[in-house]
Every structure is written in structure tokens, then in C-alpha cells.
Computed example of a mutant assay.
Amino acid sequence: MSILFLLASLGVVNGLLIGFYLIIKKKRTVADSYFGLLLLALSIRIGKSVFFYFNREVDQLILQIGLSACIFIGPFFYLYSKALQKHEQDFKRKDGLLLLALLVAIIGIGLRFPYRSFPEIWNGYIIYGIYSVWILFTLLGLYYSGRMLKGVTLSPNKMNGNQQYVAAIALAMLFITCTYQVALFVGFTYIWGALIFSFTFYYLLGRALLTKKSITPKVPVQLLENGNELLAQVNDLMASQKPFINKGLKLDELATQAGMSKHTLSRVLNEVYEYGFSHYIKEYRVNEAKQLITTRPDLSLEGIGYEAGFNSKSAFFEAFKKIANCTPAEYKKFR
């Protein structure tokens, strides 16, 4: 019995740790975030199962928290699989609204009908509703996983590394979901769901350590569509509205003005323009300074730098020298 508890609980503890890591790490993808959230939801639900299996006197608040986490397991798996299959680089607003709606619903139900006071309602209507959401979105997640495994589903030896990860996660989700669904209706022990979670988790972790790769599959970076058109769109904005004059201009602010996401603008400036946001802004400021040197003889060189958007004399002279290959004074002398 102690070995069974150790195997089940170790997966829960490590699932929580890896889940938090995937959510907070700096270079995380959309898929990483959803996989981390999936691990957290599964760990909370399965942790509740482990506690209840070995201690029937567990506080009913823990039961409520564990059951509440169930409502996110299917949706997180669905969003994770969709992010992988569609190579998503940005979080979708509609996906955020879906999660927000589920969060508001489960918190509202929990406050109105706390498990401690209404166990019969939780074990009836509420849990059936939660499990329905779980299985519906799990099926959607399996659909997207299946699309990634198309043509190799029955031939594991033909799968690449990413497909093997996807297959392992999809099978684990299928077995865990079935275990809990069967347990709900026929009283089958759901400790097997905890064991499947632990074994799958350590399989993925072991592969990651042995191959020195991430515990989650990598999302291929698609070529940026209409990159030249998007850059032209930003160039038009810079020429007509001169947002670069704002000394504190940031990438997200320029993206908003250009009508695109921060991530898309970053890719445009790094992949199409090739030199990045900072150089792009400096180049426009230097060109503005050149025009001011020619048209505003009443301004000092330092004043021209400030008018062009630089926040200091040193920053202006350094950028001008780097981009124009001469100092502002030299440029003025030969105009």
C-alpha cells in the first residue's frame, strides 16, 4: 500500500513543480503554457484522488478543489493539442474567454453550493456537468492530436520525436479520462488514473533527460505570411504619424498603432527588416535628425536629437554615428 501511495503521489508532486516551471519560464511557447496548466489541473485532481483513496476522512474542501480542477483538464488538453497542431505563436482571445467562462462558472457554483454543505449536489448534477465538459474537450484534443499523428498512428516506428511525445500524452489523457469516467458510473477505483499519470509523466521526463530536449514537443515556426506587406504597413505609419518621436516608444505601443500583435511586429522587424525593433526606431530617428539638420538651422545638434526622439545627447550621437557612419556635426558641415 505504501509503494502504491508513493508511486501515485510522486507524479502529483513533480507534476505540480514542472507545471509551474512551464508556466513561468521565460522562453515559453503557447503550447508550453497550456501543457503546464494541464499538468497543474491533472495534479490537483489526481492529488485529491490519492488523498481520498488513502484517507476517507479528508476535508471536503479538498474534494471540492479537486473536482473543480476537473473542469479544466479537457479544455487545457484541447488548447494544448490545438496550439501544437496549428503552430500557434500567440494566445487567442476566444480561448482566454473560454477559460474565463469556466473559471467564473466553477467559482460561482462553489460559492453558491460549497461541498461541505451540499455534498449531494456535487456528487450529482455538478460532477456530471464537470465530467461532461472534461470528456467533450478531451475528444476535441484527441482530434487535433490525431491530425498530428495522421499516417503514423498504427506505425509507432515511423513517428518522429515530437509525434512520440504527442502520442504518449494523447494515450495518457485517453486512459486517465476513461478511468475517471468509468469510476463515476460503475464505482471502478480511480487510483489507476493516478498511476497512469505518474508513469506517463516519468516516461516524458525520462525521454527529455536522455535526449536533452524539452518535456514538451517543439512548435515549428511557420514562415511569416505577407511579411513585406506588414513591414510596408509599419513604414507608412512611421512616415505619416512619426510615432518614433515619442522618446519612450515601446514595441507593444507601436504594434497597437500598426494594428498587429506585439509578437507579429517583433517577427516582422526581426525576420523581414532583420535588425530588430531598437535599430528600426533608431534608423527613423536618425533620418528625422538628418532632415532637421537641413531644415532647422535654428536648432542646436542636441536640440535636433531631442526633436527626433532621442532621450539624451549621447544616445543621439551614438546612434547617428552607427547608422550614418559620421557624427551629426560632420553631417551638418557637408550639407
Rank of each mutant, 00 (worst) to 15 (best):
L7K: 08
S9Q: 08
S9P: 00
L10M: 13
G11V: 10
V13H: 02
N14D: 08
G15Q: 10
I18C: 02
F20G: 04
L22A: 05
I23H: 00
I23T: 11
K27P: 01
K27F: 02
R28E: 08
V30H: 07
S33I: 04
Y34E: 09
F35M: 13
F35G: 09
G36T: 05
L37Y: 05
I44Q: 05
R45Q: 08
K48S: 08
K48F: 14
V50C: 12
V50P: 13
F52E: 11
Y53D: 11
E57G: 02
V58F: 13
Q64K: 00
I65E: 02
I65H: 01
L67W: 01
A69I: 13
A69C: 07
I73S: 07
I73A: 11
F76L: 10
F77R: 02
L79N: 08
K82T: 03
Q89S: 09
K92C: 01
G96I: 08
L97Y: 13
L97T: 14
L97V: 15
L99Q: 11
L100I: 03
L102F: 11
L102R: 03
L103Y: 14
V104I: 15
V104T: 14
V104R: 12
G110L: 09
L111P: 04
L111I: 14
Y115H: 13
R116H: 01
P119S: 08
G124M: 10
G124Y: 09
G129I: 02
Y131C: 07
S132A: 15
S132G: 15
F137E: 03
T138V: 12
T153A: 14
T153L: 15
M159G: 09
N162W: 02
Q164D: 05
Y165P: 01
V166Y: 10
A167P: 06
I169H: 06
L171E: 02
L171H: 03
A183T: 03
L184E: 14
F185L: 15
V186Q: 06
I191N: 04
W192R: 04
L195Y: 06
F197V: 05
T200R: 03
F201L: 14
F201M: 11
Y202T: 07
Y202G: 07
Y202E: 10
G206T: 13
A208F: 06
L209M: 14
L209V: 09
K212W: 12
K218L: 11
K218N: 10
P220L: 12
E225D: 05
N226P: 00
Q233T: 13
V234Y: 07
N235H: 10
M238G: 06
S240F: 10
Q241M: 09
K242T: 11
K242V: 10
I245A: 14
N246A: 10
K247H: 02
L249K: 03
D252R: 12
E253M: 14
L254A: 08
L254Y: 10
M260K: 05
S261H: 09
T264N: 04
L265N: 06
S266Y: 15
R267Y: 02
E274H: 11
F277A: 03
F277Q: 01
E283Q: 14
E288L: 04
E288N: 07
A289T: 03
G309E: 00
G309F: 07
K313N: 08
F317N: 13
F317P: 00
F320E: 09
N325V: 00
A329I: 00
E330M: 04
K332W: 00
K332C: 03
